[in-house]
Design a protein around this nucleic acid. Structure first.
Lengths: 126, 126
DNA sequence: GATACTGCTATCCTTTGGGATAGTAATATC
DNA sequence: GATATTACTATCCCAAAGGATAGCAGTATC
């Protein structure tokens, strides 16, 4: 108790660990974006690739595999010719909705706030 | 309308953009952790460094500068000897609480779920 | 005069994320 | 037989994130 670290209680550390866990499974530039897209319905590989404009197949493939491992996405192969593969979100992915919604809401108000700031700066030149 | 991209409406794109904005300002391994720590009260530089066990001063310094730029953290210098510097969160940082709370809650239930899965796997060996 | 404390900065190096390009199997179409 | 399609994989490469180590200014203490 002599280190100056006073309020790092177990409660605070538990929160930090839980947050780290969440950020770990959602890591990377694309996972949340894929989930948001799939919330509107299943999509095929090339469809996802076209929607996520700058993603390369290698990266998309890796993200989808990781999403599958975490039970956020289910991969379904159809025996058509040529083969088609469909990706859809699982019910478990819906548990991420509070996170996704809070991220979206905050981003929306943050952008509005920045635009407001810019307007005011414009009105008051040096 | 001939690309197979059907449900990428403006609403979906707006959501993606807002989410990208949020992830951008919270990017990196440490920013959310710093904010969580500071929610319990102001801390000094070395105090933060000791709490975030593996952070180096260079990285902590960079994170704090970026948090300051986004008005999440206020830096206060005290003319003591040797000089002390205190970091505290701003009211604007409190707007991140829904995000932080949803991340914490999800991480908590996810960990519980994984432990539950491991128990069940243990009960049913091949 | 050596050491310790604060709050950093500077330099170097490694790891990771992720982009670019090309190629594959199987079939269908021109 | 060349080309297109789907859903990828393989290889290479680059930039950014972030870790390791050292140092600095100013004062106080031993």
């Amino acid at each position: 108790m002599s280190t100056g670290v006073k309020h790092i209680t177990s409660e605070c550390n538990g929160a930090l660990n839980a947050i780290r866990d969440t950020l770990y499974v959602l890591s990377g530039k694309w996972k949340i974006q894929v989930i948001v897209l799939l919330r509107d319905g299943p999509m095929r590989f090339n469809e996802l690739q076209r929607s996520l404009v700058d993603i390369t197949p290698k990266v998309l493939s890796k993200e989808l595999r990781e999403l599958e491992m975490n039970e956020f996405v289910e991969r379904k192969v159809f025996n058509t010719v040529p083969v088609t593969v469909s990706y859809e979100i699982t019910p478990y992915a819906a548990t991420l909705n509070p996170i996704i919604d809070s991220l979206r809401e905050w981003g929306t108000q943050h952008r509005a706030r920045i635009i407001e700031h810019m307007k005011q700066d414009g009105k008051q030149p040096a």
